[in-house]
Simulated assay, not measured.
Amino acid sequence: MMKGLAIACVFALAACGSGRNLVMERALEDLTEDILGGDAADDAPARALGRAEIEAANRPAILARLVGDSSVTVLYQATANGPYDSYISELGQTLVLHGHLVTGTRGLGYDLLSVATSRNDPVVRPTPLSNWPQTVNRTYEFPAFSAQGRMETYRCIFELGDASEAVILGRRHTGIEVSETCSGPDGTFENLHLVDPGSGLIWRSLQWTGPDVALIDLQIVAR
């Protein structure tokens, strides 16, 4: 599925935005100044960015899009809270990553509040492919009309696939495709990862973040 894919990066997503907290608001202002140059960012049109420009920001960066949407956005690391990294786009959408696992979203139309997972989850902790477990359990939390969000637990089974590659902003990454089939109260979904077999690093993946949102195509640009 990933082989031969090369995607240009544009500052746009079709999904609607949501309210920002003060930390994210300040981070977004800082990033806008860094990337586009101060007040000029206010009137700057959406434009494509190349790898050199993204890396010049000297911040970890990812590309993301909703599957089925042709628009792709770049998100820069805004905050780090222990093992959790928050990434923010120019439009204020945010993704929270624990390792490479998406554990929170804001501004994609249906928020994912949190994800708790098995301690040996290789999507969270880079693990040589030969040491990946057969299964992990993940509990997803979604908004609900109660003091606590709606919690759903899924059992995910990993299956190794073929050697493959992804071209991310002109840079080629090779690895093994690993699919994970997750079963829980709302049925079954499938994630897909391109994994470096030696280090266990995941360069690209398609991930489920809720029953009412398309899979997120997540790609690593700068670490």
Rank of each mutant, 00 (worst) to 15 (best):
R172W: 07
S114F: 02
D212W: 09
D34I: 09
A41L: 07
V124C: 10
P211E: 00
T209M: 09
D162H: 13
C16G: 15
D85W: 14
A48G: 13
N58M: 07
Q219P: 00
L49R: 13
T127R: 06
P60Y: 11
A163H: 09
W203D: 00
T153Q: 12
L194D: 02
V102N: 00
R138L: 03
L31I: 15
G200I: 03
G200C: 05
A6Q: 10
G4Y: 06
T94H: 06
S70R: 13
G187H: 07
S130P: 01
V10E: 11
T117S: 14
E177K: 14
A78W: 02
A48F: 12
V67L: 14
E141H: 09
P126D: 08
D42V: 14
Q148S: 11
W132Y: 02
R26I: 07
A80K: 15
N81E: 10
L63F: 14
F145Y: 07
V96F: 00
Y76L: 13
F11P: 01
G38C: 13
Q148T: 12
L112V: 03
S130T: 14
G170V: 10
D186T: 14
G107F: 08
Y87N: 03
I35M: 10
I168D: 02
E190D: 11
T73Q: 05
F158K: 01
V115C: 03
E55R: 09
I7H: 11
L36D: 05
L36S: 05
G210C: 15
L192D: 01
R26L: 08
L66T: 08
N137Y: 08
H100Q: 11
F189M: 04
S118M: 09
S179K: 08
L5S: 07
L215A: 07
R119H: 10
R119Y: 07
V72M: 14
D39F: 09
A214L: 02
L91N: 13
P143L: 06
L66M: 08
A48W: 10
E180R: 06
R171D: 03
S71Q: 12
G19W: 03
S70H: 11
L194C: 01
H193S: 04
L91I: 12
R106H: 04
W132S: 06
S183V: 13
A61C: 14
S70T: 08
F145G: 07
